[in-house]
Design a protein around this nucleic acid. Structure first.
Lengths: 232, 232
DNA sequence: CAGCAAACTTGATAAATGTCAAACAGATCC
DNA sequence: GGATCTGTTTGACATTTATCAAGTTTGCTG
């Protein structure tokens, strides 16, 4: 692995606390690779051979069943994905594909498990990361089961708004068809949901989102920290 | 805590590998309590003061938003719940209530976190448990997003069938209204889904389920290990 | 055992969401 | 710049799911 990629991932909470020598060991066996857009990196059901770290670009996690497909999450720099499968030495539950040209670090799962066994600081960091992931999926399930598609869209917009320092204008960082799939609806339905949000203070033109009446939007969305705050 | 409760929970994977003295420390600070049916044990949003272990009976995990409520999971002996919140010292994302008279062990979260910091065998067991939980929720999300309500019911029946040693007849271990909520539908819709499964080899009379044509049911349900096998 | 309450079922209807087809828009490629 | 492709939007319609209002069953309790 090229050294100039090391500092970036060393700063991840997952790798921050571990022993230097163990981090070196992980890095020694790792590959750095740049992938073109729309490359399928992993396929659900395959053995989890590598822990993936996104350095640049973005990756879509998706799942399929019976000719249907759904976007489960998007991963942006700098973060890891499929840690659970790596640690449990279990098959991937989701597939992953690059959404754009992306640079990844691939760390052999066996190395991760070895270090996990010997470095208890790393083991604790893994716990923290997994607990976070688990809670995120639980929040997502609540979003899906308790809200209508319009409410999910409204809250999605508010979440982006929050992560963009409460900006009243920002770009969707996702194609609409992927956003629709992530929110559990069809593209057509998303189009209509966008239209029906206009009276509640949201204009969406292409990728550009403008919140024209935050209070109105919040009254409709009724955001809850126990669903929408990914930091807790 | 009464000693006769110790052996049962000691055998849990979560507690099996840890040092004796640390297990003793957890037990010393723990409470054992028997609750009547329909008691709300924890409320979402509250700080996670205790790790809960179900010794007997059963517990429903549910979540609410905007006057809507949904069953997220049911917990049966012997297992723990809300481990992630305990470890992260974060608020509960779900509420819990007893479904019947139930006996629980409550271990102060602070004790769990203390032992977690010092006992690396325990920390590793926590990882394994969390990874398992995470993967279960991901499977559940796939079930929800990729399948219709009838398909979810069909696969639910097949899962119970599998956990009952492939018995062709068994009882639902859940009230129908809870099952409906868990599967993400209304009671009325579940009633109709049950009826519409009859031509596909499933008879349900009260709590009693009889699979009359397994091949038919499987052809409809198309079960996948990556959604329905909770052991991987 | 009667009487009650809760759970479940059924039918009618409404609302939400998906499907299909076509039009449209923006990007990309000779 | 026109041709083409992909993604988006729109309209008409179908399907799925929810809601409401009875009934019916079940199980409990006095």
């Amino acid at each position: 692995m090229r050294d100039n990629d090391v500092p970036e991932i060393r700063s991840l909470p997952l790798f921050q606390e571990m022993e230097d020598e163990n981090f070196e060991a992980l890095i020694r066996g790792a590959y750095v690779q740049t992938f073109p857009p729309q490359v399928e990196l992993i396929t659900e059901g395959d053995p989890a051979d590598f822990l993936h770290v996104v350095i640049s670009g973005s990756v879509e996690l998706f799942a399929a069943w019976n000719r249907r497909q759904t976007t489960m999450a998007t991963v942006r720099p700098i973060s890891t994905f499929i840690l659970a499968a790596t640690i449990k030495d279990a098959p991937y539950l989701m597939s992953a594909r690059t959404m754009e040209k992306s640079r990844l670090v691939l760390i052999p799962s066996m190395d991760v498990r070895d270090v996990f066994e010997t470095d208890s600081r790393f083991a604790r960091a893994v716990v923290s990361e997994l607990a976070q992931c688990y809670r995120s999926v639980v929040k997502n399930t609540k979003d899906l089961k308790l809200r209508s598609s319009i409410e999910r869209l409204a809250n999605y917009i508010l979440r982006i708004h929050m992560t963009h320092d409460r900006a009243m204008q920002f770009d969707l960082n996702l194609e609409k068809r992927r956003l629709a799939s992530f929110l559990g609806m069809t593209s057509e339905n998303l189009s209509r949901a966008i239209k029906s949000l206009r009276p509640y203070g949201v204009e969406i033109d292409g990728q550009r989102v403008t919140i024209t009446d935050l209070a109105d939007l919040e009254q409709l969305a009724k955001p809850s920290p126990l669903i929408d705050d990914y930091s807790i």
